[in-house]
């Protein structure tokens, strides 16, 4: 249907029913229908990763997925990282290690980092650089982003150890 379709999707743990045009991109639904503007748009060609969210736990570019495809799925955005227990270790790492400057790529970069650490709790610098290579940052030169992820890895291991 090119008319609007009703979908049910869980975003940051909360279930939403949303009416979307089939051509609406997931990032537009998150930003405009749900008013969660932490997920950004930086290009038109799936090149920059500013729009990265977790789809059923995996980091994906929300500008290259249709909103209707989120029907029945779970989405996590930057707004879903902080819990009642406080900041996610990745958020803490980005602040502690100066892993951001203008902040525009940061939400996407953090979502990719969160997924990396879920899969590989003790990544090498090389692992981190490869994992974040779908996310462009124009400010930091990536050095402190690597440190931020390492900080988070240590913090997470400390918590579980």
């Amino acid at each position: 249907m090119s008319g609007k379709m009703a979908i049910t999707t869980t975003v940051n743990g909360e279930e939403h029913e949303v009416l979307v045009e089939p051509r609406m991109l997931l990032v537009n639904m998150i930003r405009e229908s749900l008013h969660e503007t932490g997920t950004h748009i930086g290009c038109d060609t799936s090149s920059c990763g500013a729009c990265t969210v977790l789809l059923d736990g995996r980091p994906v570019k929300s500008c290259t997925i249709l909103a209707v495809q989120a029907n029945g799925r779970e989405i996590t955005t930057v707004e879903g990282l902080e819990t009642a227990d406080g900041l996610h270790p990745v958020q803490e790492g980005f602040k502690e290690e100066h892993g951001l400057q203008c902040g525009y790529c940061t939400p996407g970069m953090m979502m990719t980092s969160v997924a990396l650490l879920a899969e590989n709790p003790d990544p090498s610098e090389d692992d981190i650089r490869k994992a974040i290579s779908g996310n462009l940052c124009r400010c930091t030169g990536y050095v402190n982003i690597v440190k931020a992820v390492q900080y988070a890895a240590k913090k997470q291991q400390g918590v579980t150890a």
């Binding site: 405009e32 932490g38 902080e82 900041l87 951001l100 902040g103 953090m110």
Partner: peptide, 16 residues
């Protein structure tokens, strides 16, 4: 950073 790491920055495209 307190706002940026929470996705609470306010860029022009966020103005609705």
């Amino acid at each position: 950073d307190d706002r940026f790491i929470r996705g609470k920055g306010n860029y022009v495209d966020d103005v609705q």
